[in-house]
Simulated assay, not measured.
Amino acid sequence: MGEATGYLGLFTSSFLAATLLPFYSEVLLAGLVKAGFDTLALLLVATAGNTLGAAANWVLGRYCEHYKDRRWFPFKEKSLGHAQRWFNRFGVWSLLLAWLPIGGDALTFVAGLMRVPFLLFFLLTGIGKAARYAVVILAMQPF
């Protein structure tokens, strides 16, 4: 695998992993670390892809609420109400947990619904996602 292909693959898988689609990027990241890719570059690429994927969820939440009564809408009204109450309870700082495999993607969607300012959303989400990828990279280092 060429270096550019590895980084592009990581960016793509990181982006998809942050959307509402079921996808994971940690395995590819671990493989690229083991293959000797630059770890700082991997951290930046994975974080950028994952944060931009989360931003796609924010945009969907921000601009698609008027479709919430449609059959294809990804969340039911009851689930949205529960998520919005949870978000109101814990606030924007909960976006630091947007990396969680369960609920993280929904959290970024709800942040859009709740009209969290985009720059604040992007900063908090990016910090959390960078921390998660840093842990994966560190776990792959020989001790």
Rank of each mutant, 00 (worst) to 15 (best):
L20K: 01
A139F: 11
S94P: 09
K68P: 00
L100T: 11
L96E: 03
A18Q: 00
L44N: 03
C64D: 07
V110S: 07
G36Q: 02
K68M: 02
Y24G: 13
V110P: 02
R89W: 15
L44C: 13
H82G: 08
S13K: 11
F37E: 08
K78Q: 12
L138Q: 15
T39Q: 09
P101M: 09
A111L: 05
G81N: 15
L100P: 05
A106T: 05
F109K: 13
Y133S: 06
G104T: 05
V27H: 05
E77I: 10
A55D: 09
T5M: 12
T5H: 07
G6D: 04
T47V: 15
S94I: 13
F73H: 06
V33R: 02
G31E: 01
G91C: 11
G61D: 03
L21R: 04
A131S: 13
N57W: 07
K76A: 07
G53Q: 00
G31S: 09
E26T: 09
I137G: 08
T108A: 04
S79E: 14
L80T: 03
W58K: 11
K34R: 08
R132Q: 15
C64F: 15
V27C: 07
I137P: 01
Y7Q: 04
A111P: 09
K34T: 14
A139K: 11
G128V: 05
L100S: 13
A54N: 07
P101N: 09
F11W: 15
L120N: 01
A83S: 15
R70F: 02
K78V: 13
A46D: 08
A106G: 14
F109Q: 11
E77H: 10
L10Y: 09
L100H: 08
C64R: 11
K34N: 06
I127C: 02
G2H: 10
